[in-house]
Design a protein around this nucleic acid. Structure first.
Lengths: 233, 233
DNA sequence: CAGTGGTCTAGACCACGAT
DNA sequence: TCGTGGTCTAGACCACTGA
C-alpha cells in the first residue's frame, strides 16, 4: 500500500479531481471529511481545505457544515469572461487598434437610459458615440451615456483620442456593475458606421456600472458581424 | 489614533477595497507588504494574504514576488457566467420547461465538425437536433454532435425525453471545454423551428467539451430573438 | 447536541524574480 | 542576492446545521 504524500493543495486537488473523473466518487456521493483526507494524504487539514474550497467555488463540489462535502450532481459550468479594453483585445490579436469619436454632446437621454441611470428624466447626460477600429476596419460601435452628476470631470474631457472606457477606468473606477450579452439586428446607423449590411446580426454587450455615488455610465457595444467572444470551461 | 483590529479576511478585504475606491491607493500604486498590513491591522499575515490573493484573482490587484502588490492599472473585469442547464434557466424565470427531439441519426458530420472533434472525416457521429421550450414557446434550438467513440453508451439512448446535455452530464462528464458566444442571422431551418422571422438575429453559444478520452460533444445553441445572458461585474 | 467546514494564528520554509 | 509573496503546519476556536 503506497501512500504518496501529497504536500500541496494543487496535488490534493488533482487527486480529488481524478477520483471524481474516474467515477470513484460519483455525483451526489459524500466524500470523506477534511480531517480524514488530511490523514490519508499526510498533509495538514488547511491544505485539504484549500483544495476542496477551490473546487467548491468552481462548482464541482457542494459543501455544507455538518452535512459534509458531496460531488455536485449537476456541475454548473462557470465560464469566466475577461472583459478587457477593446484596445487590448485588438492588440492581443496582433491587429492595430484605432479609435474615432463620432458624436459628443450633452443631451436628454431616452427614458430607457434615464431609467437605468436613475436620473430625473429631464437631466442632460453626456452622450458619446465612437468607433473602435482593428487594422483600420470597423470593429465595434460604442454608444455611451455618462452621468455627469457622478463624474463631473467628464464634461471637460473631449474624448477625441481616448475612449470613454479608458478615461473612466482611470478617473472614475466603478465598484460594481452588470453586463448583458445579446444579439441584435444592425440598425441603419450601426450598419452605416460598421460598414455592414442593413440587417446583419451583431453581437451586443450592454453594461451599466456604478460607484459609491451612483450610476457612472451606461454603454452599448455592437461588434462587427462574425465577432465571437471565447473562453474556456 | 484608533486601530480597529480587523480579524477576518473579509474585513481586511473591505478595508483594502475602501482605500482603492477612495483613491487613497491609486491605480499603479505599490501598497504595503503583507507583513506591514498584518501589523497595521493586528492580524496574522495569512489573513492579509487571503484578502489580497482573492482581490488579485478578481483582477483588482497585481501581485508579483519581490516586486510587491500594486493596484491594477486597468482592472480587467472578470464576468463569471453560470452556464447552467437550459431547463434550470427556464425554471428559474418561473416558466415551464419543455423539450422536443427533432432529429436523431448517425451520420457523417460536415468537415467543420469532424475537424473540431478530431475524428477521421468519414466517421459517423450521433447527430441530435432538439428544441427547448419555455411556456410552450420555442426558447432555444440545439444542434449537437456526440462522439460515440468516446461515449458509446449514447447509441442506446433515445434522447426523446432527456436532452443531450443532461444525459451527458450524468453519463460522460467533461473535464474541460471551450465556449464561444456570438450572433448569427437565423437560417431558414432555425427560423422555422424557433418561429421567428427569416433574418432574425440570434444569440448563439458554441461549446466543445472533452474528457480524458477525447472530444465528447460539440453543440450549438441558437436562442430565440431577444434572448439576453446577464451577469454582474 | 455534536459533527463538519470556515477561519485564525504564529511560525517556518520555499520559489520567484527584481536589482 | 535577498525581499516579497506562496504555501504548509499544528493547533485552536467558532458557526452553522443536521439529527
Amino acid at each position: 500500500m503506497n501512500k504518496p504524500v501529497l504536500q500541496n493543495w494543487q496535488s490534493v486537488q488533482a487527486e480529488v479531481l481524478r477520483r471524481i473523473h474516474s467515477r470513484h466518487w460519483k455525483p451526489g456521493d459524500l466524500i470523506p471529511t477534511e480531517t480524514e483526507l488530511a490523514a490519508e494524504f499526510g498533509c495538514a487539514r488547511a491544505t485539504v481545505n484549500r483544495a476542496l474550497r477551490t473546487l467548491a467555488e468552481s462548482g464541482l463540489l457542494d459543501r455544507r457544515r455538518k452535512a459534509g462535502t458531496r460531488v455536485a450532481l449537476q456541475p454548473v459550468a462557470k465560464a469566466t469572461l475577461d472583459i478587457s479594453l477593446i484596445r487590448h483585445d485588438v492588440e492581443a490579436r496582433g491587429q492595430t487598434y484605432g479609435y474615432q469619436l463620432l458624436e459628443r454632446r450633452m443631451e436628454v437621454p431616452p427614458p430607457a437610459v434615464s431609467g437605468a441611470i436613475k436620473t430625473a428624466s429631464k437631466t442632460k447626460l453626456l452622450h458619446l458615440q465612437a468607433l473602435h477600429l482593428a487594422d483600420s476596419s470597423p470593429h465595434a460601435f460604442e454608444d455611451r451615456w455618462i452621468n455627469t452628476d457622478v463624474v463631473p470631470g467628464a464634461i471637460a474631457e473631449p474624448f477625441d483620442v481616448i475612449s470613454g472606457n479608458e478615461w473612466l477606468l482611470s478617473h472614475a473606477p466603478y465598484t460594481h456593475g452588470d453586463i448583458a450579452f445579446s444579439a441584435a439586428t444592425a440598425s441603419e446607423r450601426e450598419a452605416t458606421v460598421l460598414g455592414c449590411a442593413g440587417m446583419s446580426a451583431l453581437f451586443v454587450i450592454d453594461r451599466l456600472t456604478w460607484n459609491n455615488d451612483g450610476a457612472v455610465t451606461k454603454v452599448r457595444l455592437a461588434f462587427e458581424p462574425g465577432h465571437r467572444m471565447r473562453t474556456v470551461l
